[in-house]
Write a protein that binds this DNA or RNA. Structure first.
Lengths: 238, 238
DNA sequence: TCAAAAGTGTTGTCCTTACACCCATGC
DNA sequence: GCATGGGTGTAAGGACAACACTTTTGA
C-alpha cells in the first residue's frame, strides 16, 4: 500500500527586490536562472530545486535562494503548491515560495560579485515588467506572486522588507508606489504609516538634496505580516 | 538524475459546514475519519488520500471529499502545503484544501444515509470547538483553516457557500455570526450586504414566525472570493 | 532668491457604528 | 394586545483623499 507513485516534489521561489530604474524611481526586479537541460533548455526559470528527503519545503526555498543570490531574505512565505498534471512533461509538484530582499543587500552583493569576478552562473536579474519567455508555468507563478504582493501591501508591512534598516518616509513611499504602480500623496502617506506605530523615528537625517528628511527604523517587535496560527517554522521572517 | 527521493504527496481537506446547535444558532462543524492503520490508528484525521499520478491536487481533494461526504463543495480552495520533515513518521507532504458545504445538502445527505442505512464508514461530524484528539498535525491545520475562513469572511462572500440557493438576511447574518463568533447589528448588516449588489431579492418570503422575511438569491455572476490570476482549474467554485 | 522636497493643517466625503423607531406577523 | 424579529431612519465618529500651506535645505 506504500505507493511509489513517481511524483517528484520541487521547491521554487519568486525572489523580489527593488532596484533603481532609469527614471530614478525604484522598480520591482527578480532573479531568474537559465536552464541548462531539457525540458525548456536555455529558457529562464525560477530558482529552485528538488526538496531533499530531510529538508522542509521552506528550507529548500531558503537554500536555493542563497545559492542563487548569496543572500538571506527579509521575508519568506509560501505562495502556492502548483501541481497540475500537465505543468511539466514529467509529474512534478512545485511548492513555491515568495521572498523579499533588501535593496541595499542586493546592490552590495552585486558589487561584491563584480569585484571578485565570481558571480553565480546563469543568473540574471529582470524587471518584472520586462520578463523573458519562461519555462513551465513560471510566468503564471510570477504573476500570482506579484498579485499576492500587491494585495498584501495593503494590509501588512511587507514593503518594509525591501528597505534597509534606516530609511526615510520617501523611501518607504516609493517602495509602496513601485509595488502598487501608482503615486501616493506624501502627506497622507506620512500620517497613515505614523499612525500604525510601527515606525521608530531616529534623530538622524538624510541630507544632500533639499530639506533633510528624518530617518526611521522598523519596530522589529512587530512582524511584517500576520501569519495566523502557522508557527515560525512554517514562515520565516528576519 | 531522476531522483526517487521517497517523499510521498497526500491531499487532505478541511470540510466545513454549518449545522444547527443546541441553542438554535448554527455552529461550524466538520467531518473527520477514524484511522484504521498506524500511525495514529483509531485517532481521528482529516479526510484525504494519496495524490494519484494522473491527478491534480485539487482533484484529490474533491475526490476524497466526495468519498467522505457524498457531496460536491460550494467552495474549494488550497489552504497550504504542509511539509515539515517530522510531521509524520514517514516523509509525507500534504497539500491541504479547505471546502465549504451548503448546510441543506449536508442535512439531506445525512437523512439519506440514515434512510438507506449505508453511511460512509468511520466518518463522524464534530463541532469545531469540540474536536477530538487528532492525528499528525491535523489540529494545527484545522486551526489554520478556521483562521483563513474568519479572515476571508471579512473581505469576500465565502459565507454564502454555507447557504442554500434561497435564504433570508437573517440566515446570512447568522452564518457570519457563527464564523466570526460575535453578534452583528441586523440593521447595519442588511445595509452592508445590500450595498454590495451581490444579492438578488426574490418576491418570495419565509413565513412561520413573526413578520415574514424576504428571500434572496446569490448573484452567481460574482465569485465567492477573488482568486487573483490563478485560473479556474486551480480553484474550484460552484 | 528660487525650486523642490519635508512636513503640517484643514476640509469634505464616505463608511461604520450605535441605537431609536416603525412594520407585520403568530399567538 | 403584545412579543418578536423584519426592516428603515439618523446622527456621531473615524478613516481617507484632496489640497493649501509652511519649513528647510541646495544651488
Amino acid at each position: 500500500m506504500t505507493r511509489t507513485d513517481g511524483i517528484r516534489v520541487a521547491g521554487s521561489t519568486v525572489i523580489l527586490t527593488l532596484r533603481p530604474s532609469a527614471l530614478g524611481t525604484p522598480a520591482l526586479a527578480l532573479p531568474l536562472v537559465r536552464r541548462t537541460r531539457e525540458p525548456f533548455a536555455d529558457r529562464w526559470a525560477l530558482p529552485g530545486g528538488w526538496i531533499a528527503p530531510d529538508e522542509s519545503p521552506i528550507d529548500t526555498a531558503a537554500r536555493t535562494l542563497a545559492e542563487t543570490t548569496g543572500l538571506t531574505p527579509s521575508y519568506l512565505e509560501q505562495l502556492y503548491a502548483f501541481g497540475a498534471v500537465d505543468r511539466s512533461p514529467t509529474r512534478v509538484i512545485s511548492i513555491v515560495y515568495w521572498a523579499l530582499l533588501r535593496q541595499d543587500e542586493v546592490l552590495a552583493q552585486s558589487a561584491a560579485h563584480r569585484a571578485s569576478g565570481r558571480a553565480p552562473e546563469n543568473v540574471e536579474w529582470f524587471d518584472v515588467d520586462a520578463l523573458p519567455e519562461l519555462a513551465f508555468d513560471h510566468a503564471d507563478i510570477i504573476e500570482y506572486a506579484l498579485w499576492r504582493l500587491r494585495s498584501k501591501v495593503g494590509y501588512s508591512r511587507v514593503a518594509h522588507g525591501f528597505l534597509p534598516s534606516e530609511f526615510t518616509l520617501a523611501d518607504l513611499r516609493e517602495a509602496y508606489e513601485a509595488i502598487l504602480g501608482r503615486q501616493l500623496d506624501p502627506a497622507n502617506f506620512r500620517r497613515q504609516v505614523e499612525a500604525t506605530g510601527n515606525l521608530i523615528p531616529t534623530d538622524r537625517f538624510r541630507t544632500g538634496s533639499h530639506r533633510p528628511a528624518r530617518l526611521y527604523r522598523d519596530n522589529t517587535d512587530v512582524e511584517l505580516a500576520a501569519r495566523g496560527p502557522l508557527g515560525p517554522e512554517e514562515t520565516s521572517i528576519r
